[in-house]
Amino acid sequence: MNTNETVFEIKHLQKQFGDHEVLRDINMTVRRGEVVSIIGASGSGKSTLLRCVNLLETPSDGEILYKGQNIQTGIPSLSRYRAEVGMVFQQFNLFNNMTVLQNCVSPQKLVLGRGNNEALETARHFLKKVGMEQFINAKPRQLSGGQKQRVAIARALSMSPEVILFDEPTSALDPEMVGEVLSVMRSLANEGLTMLVVTHEMSFARDVSNRVVFMDQGVIEEDNSPEVIFNNPEKQRTREFLSRVLGN
């Protein structure tokens, strides 16, 4: 695996809602196999950045390159692009009318055009991986938050993505369920999946990611290795934020 291959290159990305500027001049690069954690206070633009990357929000200015192609003008199909760039949401967003298995099977058939057997096999493989193979007949409303999030991860994995974007995947969970989701994410990171993770879990950012991006008021304040960010941050704001969330 070529770990130097650039997956994303974000250049001068800017996003505003009306007069409110949420992202101001964001520049960053994500290489294949990297796990990048994005941390920062609420309202700093972390989620908006992630949502721009898979075009749930349309950037106001600047460009996002995926494997060298501009995602707004240079990719052949938005559908295919989104299949390659998976997303896991804070609120899970599983399809309520489908069972766990159907949630993982039907997008493969509809978007990737996979046959029934291949889709089933893939779905069951990843449901097993996240420890949800026993619940394939359940509907989302019958599951706990942690279980739902694991199914959502299996759904994203079933699309055979290049990258998965995680938008605060543990923020809506009860504390005792955070662990089960983080451990799934940890094992994905160890297998070399490229991941962009917006998170408030500082231990995940510190122990699992290769890089940590600290955002503040719509800009990337610091982009560094976890060791530097957590032990000896270069910027005063990073230091202040971490001492606030880590409580020392």
Partner: peptide, 10 residues
């Protein structure tokens, strides 16, 4: 979220 979940898988 149902619309977004569907959009996000393509």
């Amino acid at each position: 979220g149902q619309f977004e979940g569907a959009a996000a898988v393509g």
